[in-house]
Amino acid sequence: MDLFVSQLMNGIERGVIYASLALALVLIFKTTGILNFAQGEMALFSTYVTWWLTEQGLAVWLAIVTSVVLSFLGGAAIERVVMRPVEQSSPLVIVIVTIGLFLAFNSLAQVVFGVEAEVIPRAYPNERWDVAGVNLKMDTVVLVGILALECVLLWLLLQRTKVGLALRAVASNPESSRLAGVSVGSMLMLGWGLAAALGALAGSLVVPITTALNPASMQEILVFAFAAAALGGFDSPLGAVVGGLVVGVANALTIQYVDALDGIELLVPFGLILAVLLFRPAGLFGKVHVERV
């Protein structure tokens, strides 16, 4: 039982990590209809920026905030310069361009910041508490808190502000939005900027917990994030969070209890992705398009 609970906690922690990156994927998919294969590597690069800033003597929290802001600007710039010309193109072109970004960010991170694994200092003390026999880690609490905060802010932005309305409008019908006076380009840049910022935050908080920072840090996380986003529905932020938790817990329990999948645990997320896409392409929370003509 204890083992089960500790695996459950472990799964929740991982799930929150996947959810944070899945949120970024969803933001971009919602606004531009693109699956961004480079999301993980963009977050990786941002995390390297955080690390570099701490190396320059900046306090960790300050480094994270700076990196998040820079990533927002960088994400918006990528949308404008790299994605805008191909946004209406075929899936092949979009895959190629996002894979191009993937390669570029991954290797540039190494060229610029070095190939050795780096340690990012933690932004908060590494404490553990014993709550009713359950071992509760500060990491889990902080990650859950940050994710909850992200969700609330995102919900407020999308549902309660004019800019949020415009963002959703662009996702729904760019042409009508333009005719209503919305600058579609700015909204797409905003979407990418927000996604990059979320990724930067996720990476900067996650890497110190899981591993030292290395060029492959984000790749497995991206796979799980895709599974989370697929499960929840690529256009649903709420779905991303629930999906992330489900995938995280399912994976932790698989590793613990299913010997048949030893070493091939990644079958779980990809199996999920395939199953969802085959049988319920809109995901658990995605909107099935209802439209009368």
Binding site: R168, A169, S172, N173, E175, S176, K287, H289, V290
Partner: peptide, 8 residues
């Protein structure tokens, strides 16, 4: 075609 923002 009215340009409805269908999801809103």
């Amino acid at each position: 075609g009215r340009g409805t923002l269908a999801e809103l």
